[in-house]
Simulated scan of single mutants.
Amino acid sequence: METLNIPFYHAVGKEQEVFEHAFKNKLPLLLKGPTGTGKSRFIEYMAHVLNKKIITISCHEETSSTDLIGRFIIKGAETVWIDGPLTTAVKEGAILYLDEVAEARPDVIVAIHSLTDHRRELFIDKLGETIKAHEDFMLVASFNPGYQRGFKELKPSTRQRFVAISFDYPEAKIESEILIKETNVDSESAKRLVVIGNKIRNLTELGLTETVSTRLLVDASKLIHSGLPKRLSVHAAVIEPLTDDQQTLEALKDLCDLVI
C-alpha cells in the first residue's frame, strides 16, 4: 500500500498509542466525540501509519446488515453472491471504519457482535457460512454521544465490546496550527478563527444542535487563503451551516464581525 502523502493529523494525547495497541491485540475501537473533531482523519492517518487498507462506511438510518455483509445479484442467467464491505474487510484483513455507527439500523449492531469479542468471526446467514476474521482485520467505529441524545444512543452492552477514545476540540494553539498546516492561511487569521470557534462553542444558550467544528474552521481558512474576504468567509463557512434561525444567525454574525 502507498505510504506517501500521509494525511496530516496533529495528536492531542495518547490516541495513536492506544490505536496501535488495540490493533496489536485485535481489539475493536470506538472513537467518541463531536462532529468535526478529527475522528475520520485520525483513522485515515493510522491506516497509513500501519500500512493497512481502510474501508469506510458512512452509516445512516437506512444502513442495513445486508449492505455491509453482501447480497445475491442476477448476473446473466446466474445468481451470484457479492461480498459487502464488511465481508471484504474480514477476508482481506483491512480496517473497517463504521462512521457514526449509532445511525445504522439495529441489525448492523447484531451483525458485528461476533466480530467484537473473542470469536472474531462473521456469520453470513444467506450463505450459511461463518468466516474467521483475517489476522489483521480491525473494526473501528465512531460515535457522537451528544447528537440527538436519547434517540441515537449505543447500548451499554455494545459500547463495552470496544476499547474507546474520546475526541474533543483541540486547545487553541493546536487548533491554530492545524488550520495553518491544512490551508496555509496566515497565522493571525488562524488565531481569530479559533477565537470565533471557541466563543460560539461556549454559547450554549443558543441551543445549537451542532457547534463549530474544526472542520468548519478549516473550510473558512481555505476560503480566506484563496482570497475571499474574511468576514464573508466566516459567514459562509462557519455561521450559515450552523442554523437557519434568523435571530441566531444575526447574533452569530455580530459576534464574528467583532472578532474579525
Rank of each mutant, 00 (worst) to 15 (best):
T3R: 12
V12M: 04
E15S: 05
H21Q: 14
A22T: 14
F23W: 10
L31R: 07
L31A: 02
L31Q: 11
G33W: 08
P34F: 12
P34T: 03
T37E: 06
T37K: 11
G38S: 04
E44F: 12
A47I: 06
V49D: 00
L50D: 04
T56K: 15
T56H: 03
S58E: 15
E61P: 06
E62R: 13
T63S: 10
I73S: 10
K75E: 13
K75Y: 02
T79E: 12
T79N: 11
W81C: 05
I82S: 03
G84Q: 05
L86P: 03
T88Y: 08
K91P: 06
G93C: 01
A94E: 09
I95Q: 05
L96A: 02
E100V: 01
E103N: 11
P106G: 13
D107E: 15
I112D: 03
I112W: 06
H113P: 01
D117P: 01
L122Q: 01
K126F: 07
T130D: 05
E135K: 11
E135A: 04
D136W: 08
F137W: 01
V140D: 02
A141C: 03
A141W: 00
Y147S: 05
G150P: 04
G150K: 01
L154R: 04
K155R: 15
T158Y: 07
T158G: 06
V163E: 04
A164D: 10
S166D: 15
Y169F: 09
K173Y: 08
I174P: 00
E175Y: 10
I178S: 04
I180H: 08
V185P: 08
D186K: 15
D186E: 13
A190K: 11
L193H: 09
G197F: 00
I200G: 06
I200L: 00
T209Y: 00
E210N: 13
L216S: 09
L216M: 13
L217S: 12
K222A: 11
L223A: 15
I224C: 09
H225P: 03
Q246R: 15
E250Q: 11
A251S: 12
L255T: 01
